[in-house]
Amino acid sequence: MMTLIIGGSGSGKSAYAEDYMISLSEEKKKYYIATMQVFDEEEQKKIEKHRVLRSGKNFCTIEQFIGIQNAVRKMEAGEKTALLECMSNLIANEMFLGAMPKKEEVVTQKIVKGIEMLRKELSHLVIVSNNVFEDGTVYDETTMEYIRAIGKINEKLAIMADEVIEVVVGIPVPIKKRQA
């Protein structure tokens, strides 16, 4: 089973995704795959905030900044679920961590393949992604390419997913419903 959860900044998508994970994981081992790399104090604070939000919820955290399929190697055998947060950070890392920014197609292909490998190992994979598409701003070409990559990957993940949920002011709005 795979679920894609999207939302904007401050939409409450993380809190929703975590509660959702808890409701579906039962006694299974729950992993939290963190994709964000810390570069400054503000990001450190953000990560702390997320840690506090997760504390007491029994998540086992794996840091995986690139090559998402490698997260599998850090997991124990047996039935397990994972929450990946956030797709847009993973895409930024894949795109910009090298000497030269990588092309949208290259990044898309790599990530989709990685997610396919990851989901096979899990009874349920929940992916949190970002809605960055509605501020009407035309950015420089590199940023536009990044936005296109997020859009394309969201599209592909939505096809793979059994359900897609948008979180709006903390409220889940179904975009693609699970088939009975």
Partner: peptide
């Protein structure tokens, strides 16, 4: 709704 965009550079 103001959160559906690229995270701004200005703090």
């Amino acid at each position: 709704e103001v959160g559906n965009g690229i995270v701004p550079i200005e703090a």
